[in-house]
């Protein structure tokens, strides 16, 4: 015991003490940081939430001219089986005149199927236009009753306060009549 007391005062003892201080401090700090991670990560989407991050939709029952609304990540997704007139109308527009210029090709994978998130880019209302009886606006697309934004047959903003087109989600055709929304093919 008495030898140990003597060595504590020497330079050797000092450097040993410094080493222990830094080593213990570093290991302790790393450990605390790592221990925090599981708690933070627990607040990320859980596995069952992620499992529903993609949705498969069977399009075969949707006739030409009809539209369906599916729920994806808690939001409505509009799927419209467009008529040849719809498509023609969408393609005929001079893109440079649009508020949010996008061609119809940029917004569709197959021209007869338009898939987009049905949330008005103004303040988040769900526009009308899915049901045959709904108002569709001047461009025969969608009409947001909240503040009067109007979208054309490609879901592009044409009139009203909304700044952007209705967003197209990532999706892919699994076969001719099935799409998976939520990830690219």
């Amino acid at each position: 015991m008495s030898q140990a007391v003597d060595s504590a005062g020497t330079a050797d003892g000092e450097s040993r003490r410094d080493f222990l201080l830094y080593a213990t401090g570093a290991v302790g700090a790393v450990g605390t940081a790592l221990a925090v991670w599981p708690f933070i990560d627990s607040m990320n989407p859980a596995k069952d939430v992620l499992a529903l991050a993609t949705v498969e939709v069977d399009l075969s029952p949707v006739a030409v001219g009809q539209a369906i609304t599916v729920v994806w990540r808690g939001k409505p997704v509009f799927v419209r089986h467009r008529t040849p007139e719809d498509i023609e109308q969408a393609k005929a527009v001079d893109v440079s005149t649009l508020r949010d210029p996008e061609t119809d090709e940029e917004r569709t994978i197959k021209p007869e199927w338009l898939v987009m998130v049905g949330i008005c880019t103004h303040l988040g209302c769900v526009p009308k236009g899915q049901k045959p009886s709904d108002p569709k606006g001047e461009w025969n697309g969608w009409f947001c009753v909240c503040h009067g934004s109007q979208y054309d047959t490609a879901g592009r903003i044409r009139k009203g306060p909304a700044p952007l087109n209705l967003p197209v989600p990532e999706y892919a055709f699994l076969d001719d009549t099935t799409i998976r929304i939520g990830e690219e093919g």
Binding site: P38, F39, D41, S42, K47
Partner: peptide, 10 residues
């Protein structure tokens, strides 16, 4: 315990 990240641990 099954679905939440590290839920079992917490």
């Amino acid at each position: 315990m099954r679905e939440v990240n590290y839920g079992w641990l917490i």
